[in-house]
Design a protein around this nucleic acid. Structure first.
Length: 246
DNA sequence: AAAGCTGACAACCGCGCGAAT
DNA sequence: TATTCGCGCGGTTGTCAGCTT
């Protein structure tokens, strides 16, 4: 059994939004605030799907949006965050005030991807494209966001026939994003919301309530290995103090 | 000037997740 | 515990403007 459609498609407009529709949506949200997107179109007198209204508001009508070209700093930040987070556009957008996930996603696909490719960097892996696949494969396959998840490695010496998933006892390539005031080795484990910088106080059980984050990369179990340059970011504590939270 | 191509970006679609029941 | 509902996310498609031939 399939999922029921989110709205009555037969009586909804599709395609580009008109000025009048925009005005209606803006007026309604100004008067009533965001929330309950499903019922909003009817209440606002719009022949649109709730999801469409939400998308339009979040991506184009919100008053706090920053329009215009991305700066070089934003470019660099997007590349670095993408190397850490992958295609988690909403998380990346959370670190770029005034930018939306859709905008960043489009910008990545049209500009940054090409920029990296022209530099010989694989935008998916952030590795040099002339690097032999077997070398890349021999190193970390996945970086887990959960300390409980295993790190999957493929040992260089093994023949393909005997390659298997196993927990690696020697390599601890841990990505940790934490508030800057978190004590080293303090034993505090952050909830996912705080780990990613998307802190929601009502969900939080870890006490990570600072609005800034650090990105901390541990290699081979060393918690303060500072000499390794990970994708241009010195491992250790990278302070994102200057970034505002959403 | 017209046709075809390409890039940019707005919008849609389907799925996963969490909250509510 | 299972089911339903709504929201949010990431991937994909559609459209249009600018460029090239």
């Amino acid at each position: 059994m399939g999922r029921s459609p989110c709205c009555e498609k037969a009586h909804t407009n599709k395609g580009a939004w008109t000025k009048e529709e925009d005005d209606r949506l803006i007026a309604y949200i100004r008067a009533h605030g965001e929330g309950c997107w499903r019922s909003l179109p009817k209440a606002a007198g719009l022949l649109r799907c709730g999801k469409s209204c939400r998308l339009r508001w979040i991506n184009y009508l919100r008053p706090d949006l920053k329009r215009g070209n991305f700066t070089d700093d934003e470019d660099d930040l997007i590349i670095k965050l993408h190397s850490l987070l992958g295609n988690k556009w909403s998380l990346i957008a959370g670190r770029l005030p005034g930018r939306t996930d859709n905008e960043i996603k489009n910008y990545w696909n049209t500009h940054i991807r090409r920029k990296l490719l022209s530099r010989g960097i694989d935008p998916a892996t952030h590795r040099a494209m002339n690097e032999p696949a077997c070398v890349a494969a021999a190193e970390t396959k996945t970086i887990s966001f959960s300390a409980k998840e295993e790190v999957v490695v493929r040992e260089r010496e093994r023949s393909p026939a005997v390659v298997k998933r196993e927990k690696c006892p020697d390599l601890n390539l841990e990505l940790r994003i934490s508030p800057p005031n978190q004590r080293e080795g303090g034993g505090g484990t952050l909830c996912f919301g705080c780990s990613t910088g998307i802190h929601k106080s009502k969900d939080c059980s870890c006490g990570g309530d600072d609005n800034n984050i650090n990105i901390n990369i541990n290699i081979n179990g060393s918690s303060s290995y500072s000499g390794y340059d990970f994708l241009g970011m010195k491992a250790g504590v990278l302070d994102y103090r200057s970034l505002e939270m959403k």
